[in-house]
Nucleic acid binder design. Structure first.
Lengths: 197, 197
DNA sequence: CGGTATGTTGACGAAGGTCAAGTAGGGTGG
DNA sequence: CCACCCTACTTGACCTTCGTCAACATACCG
């Protein structure tokens, strides 16, 4: 899925969609991970300059832009919800800017893993003490595009975290977190990671 | 100005405000440049984790959060405007993510200068052909925090661009753009820079 | 006139990118 | 069921880029 003039908005019902930006020479940066409930596309703005990539099978609920904007005008709560979500994404984007601009490779990889681990802990708090298996929907190359690293560096950092007994990459996409607290401390953030729920 | 629970929102009337994120060990990343008309603070969200820094003398029009949210509910157009602006800032943040994650130091500095030059060109299109003087509101260190670079690297890249006859840094905060087209081509973006107005 | 902020430049080192070789699964066709 | 292949992953060697440390220059301010 490609495209400049996007005449389409929608919410993700299931699966995971990534937005990426690409430079003329091919350098790629992922700029958003959209999950269940997230909104794709800008109301009131016809142009965007992203590419959307489905990292897993995705089901979306889509609208064409114009009818949707009409709907927006009719139902005030809708706009409020979108504003809230947009604010949240803006926060996430800025958190990611700190990561891209200032974190080391190790901190970047740890931060990436923590995103998924944190989510699982939120569902099952007891998991925090135990080994916790994560299924990453990304290849090393995609992680690299997310973190502003080469895929080799991602691989090396995962190996290093494994040597330190913090995680255990298994299989192609699996990662077992052996020590959540240690992983958290490798992110460079302070305890709660500056992540607001 | 510091602070977690922010009970305050407002728009910038004049001057320039920067939002920064800081890691526990002091590493700093600027995450937004707010100019005239930009909105500061999240309606519907009490917590943020930024620091706001005025780079120039600033005049703001502020509200406490609760009355403002009431106002929001009364005036539907207000919410729409905020949503549009939030979308714009999200786009800008993502553009910046590409810069932070994937651009070289030279491309970063050129992109930074182009932001200010582009704005001036938008006002006076004829300037594009001529030498164009910019007044940067930032020190080298602040530029570095914006670009995810050390201040020394910023300084070196400016010197390099000067040697190449593309810009001429003069005085402390002044930069004269000698060749707009060349500067643009140093950003790594394609012609229109992926920047939407 | 000295003092403090900011900026420049050089020397050096470390982090991470690039290139290249080799490994491990997982799926497909024989 | 096995051989093969393709893709993803790992690891090593090397090199580039950028950060760090330090010395010095410049400018602004009292």
């Amino acid at each position: 899925m490609d495209g400049d003039p996007v005449d389409f908005v929608g919410t993700v019902l299931s699966g995971m969609v990534s937005l990426t930006k690409i430079m003329p020479d091919g350098r790629t940066q992922m700029v958003a991970m959209l999950r269940q409930g997230n909104f794709l596309g800008h109301p009131y703005r016809a142009q965007t300059s992203y590419n959307a990539v489905a990292s897993t099978p995705v089901v979306m609920c889509g609208f064409r832009r114009e009818p949707f904007e009409k709907l927006l005008r009719k139902i005030p709560g809708l706009g409020q919800g979108l504003l809230e979500q947009s604010s949240k994404e803006l926060d996430a984007a800025r958190e990611w800017m700190l990561l891209l601009g200032r974190k080391t490779a190790r901190e970047k990889v740890a931060s990436f893993l923590i995103i998924f681990a944190r989510e699982k802990v939120a569902q099952h708090p007891s998991l925090m003490q135990k080994r916790m298996h994560l299924d990453m929907p990304y290849t090393r190359a995609e992680m690299g595009d997310y973190l502003g690293l080469s895929l080799e560096t991602v691989s090396r950092q995962l190996s290093a975290l494994k040597n330190d007994g913090i995680v255990d990459p298994d299989g192609k996409r699996g990662v077992t977190v052996l020590n959540y607290a240690a992983l958290l401390s490798e992110t460079g953030d302070d305890a709660d990671g500056g992540w607001l729920a």
